[in-house]
Design a protein around this nucleic acid. Structure first.
Lengths: 208, 208
DNA sequence: GTCTATATGCAGATAGAC
DNA sequence: GTCTATCTGCATATAGAC
């Protein structure tokens, strides 16, 4: 992505996001960030105060958007297709898909999310749980309404499975390589459809 | 885990595995490793040559065991329960579960695996795909035998979803916290059962 | 095999000129 | 807001005594 039209602060955010996606937080140095952003090394501390705070800001910028999109889509699904499971799952999956296809660097952010699960950054996990936990709880409630026999523990397991599968698939960690005749967008759309089908069947499976 | 009965080399391997699981590869310093292992800092380079090579050796030690267990279990399942999907999925999931419950530090290794997906270490990913790719291909073939109508692309998507869900759940990344009245072993066993049910239904879902 | 001591380099952060 | 220069600390790695 070309950064030349953005402010110093935004250039740092974009560059940091891309490098965090490629290398993780710990192995990305601020020197790499400022070099890619083509700004001076001292600018990071001037604009963000510290590396940790830069990490938080990279997160907040995207996560607010994605959470709002998920909740919007969920509320629309509950209104227009009450009692149906697949539209609810689509409301959860598709904003991640849209982010992954975003032309303004959102694709990197999906991989940043995947990294966050792996890097055991306690303060970041607490931040995410505090700020965005209510989104997951709303989805849990909506899904429970579609699968009435499902126990609470089982429901939460299955939400974890969905999150894991989504993270893994959207971050391109898996086996599937995009065939050369298929566009990036089409490829991801198929992945999302496949995941929604897979998870819908999984949520509706009888518990032992 | 108490390391006092092990050789210097093994103490380093155990200590590195635990720290890699907690913090990732990049943010774990050799000083932390040797301090936890209670050996001298120079011992790492004496026994392993470099930090990168230590990472590889941490991997190889566990991965060979887990892959062999998976294939053994798969072959037993195909013999004793031909045509059944759940025993095949159990053969995939349960060795990861067993590793997570291993008293000799294997639990840390499951989290190390999760990290590997997130850290974009190309040489490590190539190593894994070269050394252990045939295991996944055998499972794909076995599952295809149980779900005859399933297209190849759909099959591989679903294997990715299973891997993602397994990694995520076994590495304790998700929402589910172990209730205080339930033992670690029971908790993980329930997770494995829940995942097998979820994935079996998912694999058998009709593709659109 | 294990130690001390050290070489070399890069990290995050900041002071202060412009 | 942005720069140069620099402080301080820890990283990997190695040389060489025991």
């Amino acid at each position: 992505m070309s950064l030349q039209h953005f402010s110093t602060k935004d250039r740092i955010l974009y560059a940091a996001e891309e490098l965090f996606a490629q290398q993780g937080f710990a192995s990305t140095s601020l020197r790499q960030v400022t070099s890619r952003a083509d700004v001076n090394i001292a600018a990071v501390n001037y604009h963000f105060g510290s590396k940790d705070n830069l990490v938080n800001e990279v997160f907040r910028r995207r996560m607010d958007v994605m959470s709002a999109q998920r909740l919007d889509a969920l509320h629309r699904a509950l209104e227009t297709a009450p009692g149906q499971l697949e539209p609810i799952l689509a409301a959860f999956v598709e904003p991640a898909l849209a982010m992954a296809q975003d032309r303004h660097g959102g694709g990197a952010f999906i991989r940043v999310i995947a990294r966050t699960y792996a890097e055991n950054n306690d303060s970041l996990r607490k931040f995410l749980s505090d700020q965005y936990g209510h989104v997951l709880r709303e989805f849990a409630k909506a899904i429970a309404g579609c699968v009435p026999g499902l126990g609470k523990e089982e429901l939460y397991w299955r939400l974890d499975f969905l999150s894991g599968a989504l993270t893994y698939a959207m971050a391109d960690f898996g086996l599937i390589k995009r065939p050369s005749g298929v566009s990036e967008a089409t490829h991801r759309q198929r992945a999302a459809q496949a995941l929604i089908r897979f998870a819908a069947a999984g949520f509706q499976a009888e518990a032992h």
